[in-house]
Design a protein around this nucleic acid. Sequence first.
RNA 1: GGAGAGGUGUCCGAGUGGUUUAAGGAGCACGCUUGGAAAGCGUGUGUAUUGUUAAAGGUACCGGGGGUUCGAAUCCCUUCCUCUCCGCCA
Length: 424
Amino acid sequence: MLTLQQINSNKEAVIESLKIRNKDFSDIIQKVIETDEDRKKVQSELDNLLAESNSIAQKVGQLFKEGKAQEANEAKARAIELKDLTSELNESLKTVKSELTKLLSEIPNIPNKLVPSGKSDQDNFEIRAGGTKPELGENKLPHWDLAKKYDIIDFELGNKITGAGFPVYKGKGAKLQRALINFFLKEAEKQGYTEIMPPLMINEDSGFGTGQLPDKEGQMYKMPEDNLYMIPTAEVPVTNIYRDVILSEEDFPIKLTAYSACFRREAGSYGKEVRGLNRLHQFDKVEVVQIQHPEKSYQTLEEMVKYVESLIVKLELPYRIVRLCGGDLGFTSAMTYDFEVYSAAQEKWLEVSSVSNFETFQANRLKLRYKTKEDKKTQLAHTLNGSALALPRIVAALLENNQTKDGIKIPKALQEFTGFNLIN
RNA sequence: GGAGAGGUGUCCGAGUGGUUUAAGGAGCACGCUUGGAAAGCGUGUGUAUUGUUAAAGGUACCGGGGGUUCGAAUCCCUUCCUCUCCGCCA
């Protein structure tokens, strides 16, 4: 959520910046400002009545103590009158506050100035690309066929046990998963990230903190009996470690990494898009999260981009990095880089990572703040995160790009983790 | 799942209806003292919101939500969490 301060003090600039998302928010922002005015009015009125009522209560106590029951009872009359007034005002305060929250939660994050304009992923701005697309022969196979040929991933078995989108990894397929997870965690550790193993279910407060709730409720699996949700990404439990926390400036940067299974309902997906490993209900991912001083967060974003890039380079996959345009930018993000690897048999670019700076947008919901050294004021911190990396599409590209007539070659960097260099 | 005990500020800890505007202690910050330090003494010490040039001041917050009362940390309801015992269990 944006803060009222952001909106009140820079109304025009906020409206202008949001235009890059191809939508006009001027009406809703105007409404926010008016509703906030109402809120202030109601609140100060209520506060005055409460102040009066407090002082009467104190006086009544005093009078009773002195044995002046008569006077005490007289004072009560006004207090009872005040009670009705305050409870009424309290109701309207609640109403106006929830109205305000509702309005605020409809406004997305303000895009960074570098975010290019555009409507869809067609308009994303390519930052750079690397690696080389392999030359595969005529009998190249897509990864779902390779998975079957070498018996390493069984999609039908997953259907039987759970349903579509829950594949079963077998033998070298399972080992490859584990190797990738270990490789990613090890690289993250080298970069100074502290490893976290988080809960895979979260409560409502956590879902709200990182912005999944209430808007994206349909995206998560829910356990209604216990009012918990399966995590769609480790970002949620890991970032929520710092919900309701006040840091000091020396604590920055906070660097955390976590492997977790991720669960997504992906309602409405169909067809070619979901074939094989392209889109799953359960998948594995290593996430990196940073909490940073506002002045350093963009420097950190670039650092994270370089880090994710280095992983893909080590896996020897052809890739490109794009900066998302306004139309494609996520609701909570101020700036996002997407990473795509080329999957040579499908002849498709697959998104394998998304690295974002949320600035104070999540921190405001999380109440994640820090105290400045100088004047000891509390201010919102910046949060960032990125996939490093999501496994299934990496696996798809590895299988397809490295297929040979002898089997599938494992990239060098991964071999110490797999313990083999060929799937055959 | 059953029975019981708890949840108070940065920490420890008192507080079962009215100067609690949360005692006391520790920690921390600043000042005094000192050649310097320790001890000692003094002052201050949360979050949010409102207000103001700035302040003073107001309001809310004693796990969360609701209620009783002129008045709630304190009484009632509800919910979450922690601990002890029992049951079940990888």
